[in-house]
């Protein structure tokens, strides 16, 4: 009977597969190579690909050790969750410091991680800017313009998305740091979110809504994503810099518990330190992240206009405080946001 042949063949294939798995998980590839896992958030994939290739080259030239760096990308908070659940990350390069700090609270990252690398463990930074349609038909220049007339704003949910949180805090800061009261700020964000026709859950969804589906007049997003979005639009979209915005700080850290177990301390630390070198800072700038190195930043001044950037500490005591005050279930966001029926 042919059915037996098919079954036999199927099981043979499965066995071979299982055997392959067993040998793979045992040897883990080239034994002479050190393997690092960099757990990051979605838009950094290409940046780290380039950095990784450069680091592997430089490290093997200096130390004679081959390094293979693997990457994992996803939503920043769910990436942090995976590391807490045992994803063997050697380094984490997440979007929000609060996500990295959640891993510290689980005991996997040592205290004081924000002092371990230069500039508060921040090798590059970014901000929230506006993307508008060709010719800026609604004349959007500043945060206050966002609540004029019939303007529709696209931004992801501040409950679920790092991009959304930063946009919210940028809008909030634009009021309180220019002399407005907390009540004014609350009124402003309420008016702003009333103009959000589609509140996507993630950054990419919001970009699709704005760029591909053509919904909305202004898209609030990270500067590096805005640059790519404008470049890919072939002239249909433009970038607008508000005079003031938040300073987004995607800090980096080594996951000490995993390093100890895997014996990768030295190479992981060398890897993150390498990001601060002038060569990599150039690469960082080319991917539209603002390099922390002042000299390199100055060289790219026309890509990164100098606008007033405020840190999280200007609008909240800490990221934990911001999450509690603004984004928890009895926080400001839930109070002001009502899904529109447009």
């Amino acid at each position: 009977m042919w059915i037996k042949g098919v079954l036999g063949l199927g099981f043979a294939a499965a066995l071979v597969g299982a055997g392959w798995v067993a040998t793979r998980s045992g040897a883990a590839g080239d034994p002479s190579a050190v393997e690092l896992l960099n757990v990051s958030y979605d838009p950094t994939r290409e940046l780290w690909q380039e950095v990784n290739a450069r680091f592997a080259e430089a490290y093997s030239a200096d130390h004679g050790v081959r390094v293979a760096i693997r990457q994992s990308h996803g939503g920043s908070s769910s990436q942090a969750r995976s590391v807490i659940d045992g994803l063997p990350a050697d380094v984490v390069t997440l979007a929000l410091p609060s996500d990295t700090d959640a891993i510290r609270k689980a005991g996997l990252i040592d205290e004081g991680w924000e002092e371990q690398f230069p500039h508060g463990s921040l090798p590059y930074f970014s901000t929230i800017v506006f993307v508008v349609r060709k010719g800026n038909p609604k004349g959007v220049k500043d945060w206050t313009d966002l609540v004029q007339g019939d303007i529709a704003v696209i931004t992801p949910s501040a409950k679920t998305s790092g991009n959304g949180k930063l946009s919210f805090l940028a809008a909030w800061g634009s009021v309180v740091l220019r002399g407005g009261s907390t009540e004014d700020a609350e009124k402003f964000v309420k008016e702003l979110y009333r103009r959000v026709p589609v509140l996507d859950s993630g950054a990419r969804g919001a970009t699709t809504t704005f760029a591909q589906k053509g919904i909305g007049d202004v898209h609030l997003t990270w500067e590096n994503e805005a640059q790519l979005e404008v470049r890919e639009s072939k002239g249909e979209l433009e970038l607008v810099y508000p005079p003031i915005s938040i300073r987004a700080e995607p800090k980096v850290a080594v996951v000490n518990a995993n390093l100890k177990r895997r014996g990768t301390q030295d190479v992981a630390k060398a890897y993150l330190s390498f990001v601060y070198t002038a060569e990599i800072q150039e690469i960082v700038a080319r991917h539209f992240y603002r390099p922390i190195d002042a000299e390199v930043l100055a060289r790219h001044a026309d890509t990164f206009p100098a606008i007033e950037l405020f840190g999280i500490e200007r609008v909240a005591a800490s990221w934990d405080d911001a999450n509690r005050r603004f984004f928890s279930s009895d926080g400001v966001f839930d109070r002001i946001y009502e899904p529109s029926d447009k």
């Binding site: 896992l37 838009p43 994992s72 995976s82 890919e232």
Partner: peptide, 24 residues
Amino acid sequence: SGRIDGLTCTMPLRVEKLFQQLRH
């Protein structure tokens, strides 16, 4: 999966990951 490129990304995960990128 932990979404590790070239290690634990199956076809559907890869589709999503590539879709998340902005490049054409």
